[in-house]
Amino acid sequence: MVAITFKNNPVTLQGSEVKVGDQAPNFTVLANDLSPVTLDDSKGSVRLISVVPSIDTGTCDAQTRRFNEEAARFGNTTILTVSVDLPFAQRRWCGANGIDNVQTVSDHRDLSFGKAYGVAIEELRLLARAVFVIDSNNVVTYVEYVSEATEHPNYEAAIEAVKALQ
């Protein structure tokens, strides 16, 4: 299993580690209007799933903005930002920051995504920072579990993984 720290303190991740070549696990999270969102909802497109501990923190803010900017350059790609923030907070943040190319979704209800992708932090009930790229056939083609949850992911590698599928 992946070793993750949060502010340099080791944490326990719940769920199974996802690896390149795996069939992407399905999940159910909530859109900003409280409607359910699943992996199957975007079947047939490339998916970049950006996972952040909380949208209202500096690194998470920067990560979401970066993928929002890149989204305009991608064709047939769905970009989801997953956190355990409440859907109302995500909607407020997106509106205040002009985020319209990335769909923020909440895993607050039952950690469906967090447990399916092995990013649910047991001690904090937050998600560990990670990036997953999934092809149109639901095969995982890129995985990054960021070893220190307060640090940035490798944006360039994730972007190249999306471009390779286009």
Rank of each mutant, 00 (worst) to 15 (best):
G75D: 15
Y142P: 04
A24M: 05
E17Q: 14
R109A: 15
T64G: 05
V18E: 05
T81C: 12
S147I: 04
L111P: 12
L30Q: 15
D41G: 02
T57E: 12
L86H: 05
D56R: 02
C94G: 10
V140Y: 00
L86R: 03
V51D: 02
K163P: 09
E151Y: 05
N9T: 15
M1H: 14
T59R: 02
V133E: 06
L86D: 04
R125G: 10
I4R: 00
F67S: 00
T78H: 14
L80I: 04
R125Q: 12
F88A: 14
D135E: 10
E156I: 05
C60G: 04
S112H: 05
L80R: 05
N97K: 09
L80F: 15
V102Y: 08
D85A: 10
V46S: 05
T5W: 01
V102K: 03
L48R: 01
A130Y: 02
N138T: 07
T64Q: 05
N9E: 15
N97H: 09
V52I: 11
D135S: 04
A130I: 01
T12A: 11
A62V: 11
V37D: 09
Q23T: 14
V20F: 02
T28G: 10
S147P: 12
V102S: 05
K115D: 14
V102E: 08
A120G: 11
R65I: 08
N32G: 15
R129L: 01
R65S: 14
A89T: 07
N8I: 11
R73F: 13
D61S: 11
P10T: 12
S50D: 06
D100G: 15
V52L: 07
V139Q: 07
I55N: 01
K19D: 03
L124Q: 06
D61W: 14
E122N: 15
R66F: 14
G21D: 06
T59P: 07
N8V: 13
L48K: 03
T64R: 04
W93Y: 06
L124W: 03
M1G: 15
V52K: 04
N97I: 04
V146Y: 03
A128W: 01
R129K: 05
V143W: 01
N9Y: 09
S45C: 10
S106W: 05
E122I: 11
N138I: 03
R109H: 15
D56A: 07
N9W: 10
Y142V: 02
Q23L: 13
